[in-house]
Computed example of a mutant assay.
Amino acid sequence: MVTLADVKSSNALIPSTLPPGLVAVFVGATNGIGEVTLKKFAKQSRQPRVYLVGRSQDAADRIIAECRMLNSAGEYIYIKADVSLIRVVDEVCDSIKAKEKTINLLFLSAGLPVLDRSETSEHLHLLAALTFYSRFRFITNFLPLLQRASGLRRVVTVAGGGIEGKLDSTDFPALRIRFIAIRGHIATLITLGLESIARNAPEVSFVHDYPGTVSTALTKNMPGILGYIARASIYFFGRWICVPLEESGERHLYLATSARFPPASGDGDNSGVPLGDGFDVAQGTTGAGSGVYSVGWDCESASAAVQKLLAGYREKGLPEDIWRHTESEFKRITVPEARL
């Protein structure tokens, strides 16, 4: 386990070790983990330019005002959007690409308390749309800007790193999978999908993490019996099972900025806050410092059992299959002729 003290020590070095003018895009930043991580990034960075993408104008106004109090030298831009829709993701990306040539950090944490088979207007399973398809659309749209950045070049997606499970290759969109198995399925989908992208982007590092149990609006608004169980568990056992929101923000800032998670190119001296004594680069999904990292709430790499599971799917060519499926869905949604 990476202790909270070690995390904070690394984060405290951001102003002195990372360059000024970092450009960051936070998707799902108007509440919860995205919000608290954004504010910690704003506080520690020198003259950052930060894009907040979310659904609540009121929340964005409040967060921007708080960020300006934390760091008046930063620039904070809000883009209101429903990022469950691929076409909307494209519009958001186009608006940012019109202003920016490079991006240093893409932080993805959008989510909803979805516990049914709801579909978007683009005929994607809403849960999968938010946690996989739209996030991967952001990544692919912004990948050239990430590759062109100097210094930090990182993607962090907050979902299920370290808890990857059985993947149903006949149902990538999770339309038929039992709800009890969806979390592991989508977590594996994300990690193997990142591996596929990373092969063509060795200059960029990709972190997929599981935040643990964090009391956020997502939990508080979760419907049905599962929502009741989640809230009751937090109420009675939160002291022992929950990661405090402030700690989660510190840990996610660490995942976003520490050189412990370098790109596969091995540019360790230029990939984040330098490592302290006693720390080595993290074990990636295909080896130490491999560029794709599956990590748990404690900022440690996935277990040997998860590594073995992923290796088995990798041997079967699942990363390639996942990417072919993802590209076909993007084409179906965005190319008119493909919908005929």
Rank of each mutant, 00 (worst) to 15 (best):
D6S: 10
I14T: 12
G21Y: 03
V23L: 01
G28I: 00
N31P: 01
G32E: 02
I33Y: 00
E35L: 09
L38N: 07
Q44P: 06
P48C: 08
S56I: 07
D61T: 14
E66D: 13
A73E: 15
V83Y: 04
V83Q: 03
S84E: 05
E100H: 08
S109M: 05
S121F: 08
S121G: 07
L127M: 08
R137M: 04
F142G: 13
L145V: 06
T157R: 01
T157C: 02
G161T: 05
I163E: 06
A174E: 10
L189S: 09
S196C: 15
S196M: 14
V214P: 03
L218V: 03
G224N: 07
I225M: 12
I229T: 03
A230M: 05
V243A: 02
E247M: 10
G249M: 05
Y254K: 03
A256Y: 11
A259Y: 09
P262S: 04
G276P: 06
D277K: 11
D280Q: 13
T286N: 09
S290P: 01
G296C: 09
D298T: 02
S301G: 04
S303A: 01
L310R: 11
R314A: 13
E315Q: 11
W323N: 12
R324F: 13
R324P: 05
H325F: 14
T326F: 01
T334E: 15
A338I: 03
L340V: 08
